[in-house]
Simulated assay, not measured.
Amino acid sequence: MSKPADSLNVLISHVAADEALAHRAAAALRRAGHQVWTGDEIYPGDNWAAKYAEALEQSDAMIPLLSPAALDSERVQSDLAFALGQKRYANRLIPVFTAGADPQSERFPWVLRRFPLVRMTDGADSEEAAFREVTAMLKDSAAGTSEANATLTAKTADAG
């Protein structure tokens, strides 16, 4: 069974302290039809590094949950560096700032200030609004890719 054209493989980059938030974000993205990887897919005895590398390689989009703790995380910083170097993440790297995280902080990679940022304040309403915003951004990105693929297919057919 193939996934819908506007469905993406999304990796949610987060720290352990934000795991509950990552699960809520994953649930919202799954309701929108996306495949989501949060790290729960790693089981005791698995090679953690290999599983994580596989998830990074298979993902089409990344949603880093940037809490104050995440801004100090080497892994989250490495995930961001990886995503910035991948063309497939164009328009699909969507930083989400949680309550208390400051996008102007020196700990935040300056280059991401050029990206659309999603901000979340305390409270379920803010959280749901942020998840809706992320879902809409992913949908727009996936639709753009589907249109580009259809154009490429048409051009290839015309050339043949």
Results as ranks from 00 to 15, higher is better:
113 R>V: 01
2 S>C: 07
27 A>I: 07
132 R>G: 09
84 L>Y: 03
63 I>T: 03
11 L>G: 10
127 E>I: 08
159 A>T: 06
47 N>R: 13
12 I>H: 07
62 M>H: 06
59 S>I: 07
64 P>R: 03
119 R>V: 01
147 E>K: 13
105 S>L: 12
103 P>F: 00
141 S>E: 05
65 L>G: 11
131 F>N: 14
95 P>S: 01
103 P>L: 02
102 D>Y: 02
48 W>V: 05
90 A>T: 12
32 A>P: 07
101 A>H: 05
54 E>R: 15
30 R>L: 04
15 V>Q: 15
76 V>H: 14
106 E>H: 09
68 P>T: 01
144 G>V: 00
119 R>D: 01
10 V>K: 03
126 S>N: 14
46 D>Y: 03
37 W>E: 12
77 Q>F: 01
138 L>D: 03
4 P>M: 01
38 T>K: 07
86 Q>R: 11
118 V>M: 06
99 A>R: 14
106 E>Y: 03
156 T>I: 11
9 N>I: 06
40 D>W: 06
153 T>C: 08
145 T>E: 14
139 K>R: 07
153 T>V: 08
122 D>F: 04
94 I>Q: 01
19 E>F: 00
15 V>F: 01
139 K>E: 08
6 D>V: 09
70 A>N: 10
1 M>R: 14
97 F>G: 03
132 R>A: 12
77 Q>A: 10
63 I>K: 02
47 N>I: 10
89 Y>H: 11
101 A>D: 02
15 V>I: 12
82 F>K: 15
137 M>W: 00
63 I>N: 02
97 F>W: 02
13 S>D: 12
131 F>S: 08
93 L>C: 04
29 L>C: 06
10 V>E: 07
67 S>D: 03
74 E>A: 14
42 I>E: 03
73 S>Q: 13
121 T>Y: 12
37 W>P: 06
119 R>P: 04
35 Q>E: 15
143 A>S: 15
87 K>L: 09
81 A>G: 10
